[in-house]
Design a protein around this nucleic acid. Structure first.
Lengths: 279, 279
DNA sequence: GCATGTTGTATCATACTGTAGACAAATAGA
DNA sequence: TCTATTTGTCTACAGTATGATACAACATGC
C-alpha cells in the first residue's frame, strides 16, 4: 500500500460518520473527547480534529468549546427502499418524482464480459447507454446498459431518456421472459462519483442484471450503481414448510411498491457494527 | 473535504483495479501508457506510477520496460454466490468448509436502533455477539447479532460459535415466522477491515435482517458485512402475469440450490448456491 | 469561586504527497 | 540499423499530513 494509503484523518472521519449514520451515536449524544478519540484510533489529537472539522462542516456534529462535541439533531432522510421481489416495476408507482439524465449513447463492439453474460457472438455490436436516475432532484443511481444492436435500433435516444428501457423492449416485440441479477458493492470511481455527487471512494451498491427473452437470448444487460444513503433493497421472507423441511420463502412483490411490510415500519437502516472488539 | 481527501494515487489505483476486476481490461490486454493515464486522470506521471506500482505489487499487472504494462493472466477467483430466495438455508450444503470465529459475546442494553427494529421496550437487555465466518480458510463475512435476553439465555457462548443461530433459536422453542432484510453498501471501518482482512475503506455489502416470531416479536437482529470479492447475492426472476398486468416474480429457491437458472454463465461455475444461514 | 474537562489556537519538526523536468534503458516495429 | 515508444531512475521543490507539546478560552459542576 505504499503511496496509496487512506489518510488517517479520513479513516477517523469515515468511522465517526458511519457511527452517526447508523444510529450508534444517537442524536444529541456527546462524542468522546478529542483526547479519547485520539487514543481510541491511535492517532494524534490534531488528526482527530481534522476529522471532526469535516463532520462539522457537513453539519453532522456540533462542537462547543468547553462543553464537548454533540451529534446534530436533524435526522438524515431515510433512503428509498425497493422491494427486491418487484425490483423491475415502475419506480414512479412509489409516488416519488423521478427523472433521467442520459450521459452516453452509442453503438460499439460488445465487451467480452457483456457478450458472455448475454450469450452474444464475440464482437457483436451492442448499444451502450449510461443514464443517471434522479429522485426529488437528487441523483441516486448510475445505470449502464448494453442491448444487442438488433433490439437497440427499435427505439431512439430520446425515448431512452424518457421511458423505462424494459417497456421499450416489450413495445418492440421482445418477449421478455427471465432475468438474473446479482448484488455486490463497489467503490465510486471519479466519473461515477461526479455523476452521483459523492466522494471518490464512497461505497455503492452494485446490481448487475441480465434479461433474456423466451428463446433464451440476452436482450439487456444492466450494471447499476446506487447510492446506499438514498436507495436500499428490501426483501420480506416467511418461514414455510413442515418441521422436517423448514425453509424460507420470499413474500411476492405487491403493487404498492413494497410499502406493506410485515414488520419494520421504520426501516432501521444500516445498523452497523458498533465497534470495539475485533482485530 | 479539507484534510480528509483520498490521495490521487489511490484514486487512480482504485479505478484501474476496478477496471481490471470487472473485465473492462481483459487479461493480457495492454494498459494505456503512463503518459496517457496521467493525462486521462489529470495527474502527474509519477502519481500514475505509484498506482501502477501497487497494482504490480498485488500481481494484477505486469510491467515491461520498453514494452508497456499488461494485465496479468491469472483470473481472480469469482465470489461465492448466494441465492437471495433461499438465503437462510444451511451454507454447509454448498459443499464448502466453513468455520466461525467468535469475536465478542455479552449482554447489554439494546441500542436504540436495534430496539426499534425488534420492537423491544427501550433499554431492554439484549445479547450481542460478533462473529466472523470463514470459508476455505478465508474470512468473508462479519456478523453482528442482537437477540433479546430471554431468548439469548437458552444457548451458550460455545454453541453460538459452532451452530447457526437460527437453529439455536428454533431449538429453544422460538417459532420463527417472518424476516425482513435490507441490502446496502458501506465502507470497512478499521475493526471490520482487520477481521475481514481488507483495507480500511474497502466497499462491503451490508445486509440487515430482523427476524420475528409468530407473535410478531423480534427474536434476532443481524447486521452482516460481506466482502464483495468473496460473496454476492443472486436472484432469478421470471416475467409473469397477463399483458395488462405484467410483472416480475422471484424464482423460489428450489432444492438444487437454484441450479436451474435461465442464464448466468458468468456465475454458474461449478459449485452452486444454496446458502448461508446467518451468513 | 474554582477545579476540571473540554474545544480552540499556536508552534515546530518530520514524513508523505504531488508536480516538473531530464535522462537512461529496454522494447517493438519499420 | 534506426526510430519511436515505453518503463525505470534521478533530482529538486512546494504543499500537505501527521505528530508532539504547550497554552488560551470556554463550560460545567461542585
Amino acid at each position: 500500500m505504499a503511496g496509496v494509503a487512506v489518510p488517517k484523518a479520513r479513516q477517523v472521519y469515515l468511522v465517526l460518520r458511519e457511527r452517526i449514520a447508523s444510529g450508534g451515536l444517537p442524536s444529541g449524544e456527546a462524542l468522546p473527547g478529542e483526547q479519547a478519540l485520539a487514543a481510541e484510533h491511535s492517532v494524534s489529537r490534531i488528526t482527530v480534529r481534522r476529522a471532526l472539522a469535516e463532520l462539522e462542516r457537513e453539519g453532522l456534529i456540533d462542537r462547543r468549546r468547553g462543553a464537548g462535541t454533540f451529534v446534530t439533531q436533524r435526522h438524515a432522510p431515510k433512503p428509498l427502499v425497493a422491494d427486491l421481489a418487484d425490483v423491475l416495476s415502475n419506480i414512479a408507482a412509489m409516488g416519488r418524482s423521478t427523472s433521467v439524465r442520459l450521459l452516453a449513447f452509442g453503438y460499439q463492439d460488445a465487451p467480452p464480459a457483456i457478450a458472455e453474460a448475454l450469450r452474444l457472438t464475440p464482437g457483436e455490436r451492442v448499444q451502450r447507454s449510461v443514464r443517471v436516475r434522479i429522485i426529488d432532484g437528487q441523483p441516486f443511481s448510475y445505470l449502464t446498459t448494453h442491448v444487442p444492436e438488433r433490439v437497440g435500433v427499435t427505439y431512439s435516444e430520446a425515448e431512452l431518456a424518457s421511458r423505462p428501457l424494459l417497456s421499450l423492449l416489450e413495445r418492440s416485440g421482445v418477449s421478455v421472459d427471465r432475468a438474473t441479477q446479482e448484488i455486490g458493492a463497489v467503490l465510486a470511481s471519479p466519473d461515477v462519483a461526479a455523476a452521483l455527487d459523492v466522494d471518490v471512494g464512497s461505497a455503492l451498491i452494485a446490481l448487475t442484471r441480465a434479461v433474456y427473452d423466451t428463446d433464451g437470448r440476452g436482450v439487456e444487460h444492466l450494471a447499476a450503481l446506487y447510492r446506499p444513503d438514498r436507495y436500499a433493497f428490501r426483501m420480506d421472507l416467511v418461514r414455510t414448510g413442515s418441521d422436517d423441511r423448514r425453509r424460507w420463502a420470499p413474500v411476492a412483490g405487491n403493487d404498492d411498491g413494497g410499502r406493506t411490510q410485515p414488520a419494520t415500519t421504520a426501516t432501521a437502516r444500516g445498523t452497523q457494527s458498533r465497534t470495539g472488539e475485533g482485530t
